[in-house]
Computed example of a mutant assay.
Amino acid sequence: MRILKITLLIVSSFTAMGSYAASFDCARAVTVTEHKICNQLGLNDADVKMATSYNILKRLVPMGTRSVIQDEQVKWLRLRDQCRDNLRCLNDVYAMRQQRIDLYLQQIYQRGPY
């Protein structure tokens, strides 16, 4: 009985982990793009990395710059959603956004030390 409980706990934890991407709950995915991101491990990983980097960046910049970065993110999300389920397009837009966020982070790093 104890082994069954442990097995169920492990399986349920993997199931819960698999239903989330970084920026949204895959169980509530609505758009074709969101479903594609949830179903493609590489896109899911890109989403995790981009969302994490974006959230770090938002905390490192002053409020004026933060609003610019948030506006860019909204525009980028619209661009991403235009890809629909085109894997190549999605990979390209994620790479482009990650590159932009990394550039911001590099500029902050160069102003250091903190």
Score class of each variant (00 low, 15 high):
residue 49 K to D: 11
residue 49 K to V: 13
residue 49 K to W: 12
residue 50 M to W: 06
residue 50 M to Q: 06
residue 51 A to I: 07
residue 51 A to F: 11
residue 51 A to Q: 08
residue 51 A to G: 10
residue 51 A to P: 01
residue 52 T to C: 10
residue 52 T to G: 08
residue 52 T to K: 14
residue 52 T to F: 11
residue 53 S to C: 13
residue 53 S to K: 15
residue 53 S to N: 15
residue 53 S to R: 15
residue 54 Y to H: 07
residue 55 N to A: 07
residue 55 N to C: 03
residue 55 N to K: 06
residue 55 N to W: 09
residue 55 N to D: 05
residue 55 N to M: 08
residue 56 I to E: 13
residue 57 L to A: 06
residue 57 L to E: 01
residue 57 L to Q: 00
residue 57 L to H: 02
residue 58 K to T: 15
residue 58 K to P: 13
residue 58 K to H: 15
residue 59 R to Y: 12
residue 59 R to T: 14
residue 59 R to F: 14
residue 59 R to Q: 12
residue 60 L to H: 05
residue 61 V to K: 10
residue 61 V to D: 07
residue 61 V to P: 11
residue 61 V to T: 10
residue 61 V to E: 04
residue 62 P to M: 07
residue 62 P to G: 10
residue 62 P to I: 10
residue 62 P to K: 10
residue 62 P to S: 10
residue 63 M to K: 13
residue 63 M to D: 14
residue 64 G to Y: 02
residue 65 T to R: 07
residue 65 T to L: 02
residue 65 T to M: 11
residue 66 R to A: 13
residue 66 R to W: 12
residue 66 R to F: 12
residue 67 S to T: 15
residue 68 V to L: 08
residue 68 V to Q: 13
residue 68 V to I: 09
residue 68 V to F: 09
residue 68 V to T: 05
residue 68 V to W: 06
residue 68 V to Y: 06
residue 69 I to Y: 03
residue 69 I to E: 00
residue 69 I to A: 04
residue 70 Q to G: 03
residue 70 Q to V: 09
residue 70 Q to K: 07
residue 71 D to Q: 14
residue 71 D to H: 14
residue 72 E to A: 10
residue 72 E to W: 13
residue 72 E to N: 13
residue 73 Q to V: 01
residue 73 Q to Y: 05
residue 73 Q to L: 04
residue 73 Q to K: 02
residue 74 V to R: 04
residue 74 V to L: 02
residue 75 K to P: 05
residue 75 K to A: 14
residue 75 K to C: 03
residue 75 K to F: 11
residue 77 L to W: 03
residue 77 L to V: 05
residue 77 L to N: 00
residue 77 L to A: 03
residue 78 R to F: 11
residue 78 R to K: 14
residue 78 R to S: 09
residue 78 R to C: 06
residue 79 L to R: 03
residue 80 R to T: 02
residue 80 R to D: 02
residue 81 D to W: 02
residue 81 D to I: 04
residue 82 Q to K: 12
residue 82 Q to E: 10
residue 82 Q to N: 11
residue 82 Q to R: 11
residue 82 Q to P: 05
residue 83 C to S: 06
residue 83 C to Q: 00
residue 83 C to L: 10
residue 84 R to V: 04
residue 84 R to N: 09
residue 84 R to S: 04
residue 85 D to H: 07
residue 85 D to I: 01
residue 86 N to L: 03
residue 86 N to M: 08
residue 86 N to E: 11
residue 87 L to Y: 10
residue 87 L to D: 06
residue 87 L to V: 08
residue 87 L to K: 07
